[in-house]
């Protein structure tokens, strides 16, 4: 469901296809830029949101990663950080926010509730946001320590750094989105 960077498809050698050496190193540069400028959209609904505040706080300081500018407008955000329980009433909202985000976009499910429903296996709680949006990184914990949230962020940085500029146009990605009925 999410993109596994460990598995690399065999690519045509450089210079044969359109993307030559220049293009790939250019991609690397953009990957680096993206890596260091991931603006989060803190979709904080409950307890994990407080831990996110701690992550923003002086002791952990998410800004070291270039991610301290929280963009509450989905248009400007790069990562959707879903923190806290997502009830079934809220599910469509998450999806809508995801749809409003501009590519490239990543999703982190922070904490047990967002990832799987956690302790709340109840009629009203969505059992994991991967039922409505594709999730790239899961962070376990209830709530995770700020270190773990930063770990999750670094995981996304890995993804952002190694991602091809064309991945978002690839048929696999389109199929993934289609499976979530997004656009």
């Amino acid at each position: 469901m999410s993109e596994n960077t460990d598995i690399k498809l065999v690519e045509a050698p450089d210079g044969i296809s359109g993307a030559g050496f220049f293009a790939t190193s250019f991609e690397k540069v953009i990957g680096l830029a993206r890596k260091h400028s991931l603006w989060p959209l803190p979709f904080a609904t409950s307890c994990c949101g407080i831990e996110y505040m701690a992550t923003m706080g002086s002791n952990y300081d998410i800004s070291r990663f270039g991610s301290e500018r929280p963009s509450f407008s989905p248009r400007q955000a790069d990562i959707l950080m879903v923190m806290g329980t997502i009830a079934k009433k809220m599910g469509p909202v998450v999806k809508q926010v995801y749809e409003q985000m501009a590519e490239p976009r990543w999703v982190i499910a922070v904490g047990a509730c967002a990832s799987s429903g956690g302790i709340f296996d109840t009629y009203s709680v969505l059992q994991g946001i991967d039922r409505v949006v594709p999730v790239d990184v899961y962070v376990p914990g209830c709530p995770p320590r700020p270190e773990q949230i930063l770990d999750g962020l670094m995981r996304v940085q890995e993804l952002a750094e190694n991602e091809s500029l064309r991945r978002r146009n690839s048929p696999e990605y389109q199929a993934l989105l289609a499976s979530y009925n997004i656009k």
Binding site: S46, G84, T85, I86, A87, K89, M90, V93, S124
Partner: peptide
């Protein structure tokens, strides 16, 4: 309201007393 309704009261009816503390 109700965007994070998690049914605490219902869960509490299904869990032994000591397991309600985490709730």
């Amino acid at each position: 309201i109700g965007y994070i309704h998690r049914a605490f009261e219902k869960i509490a009816e299904r869990r032994p007393f000591y397991q309600i503390t985490p709730l």
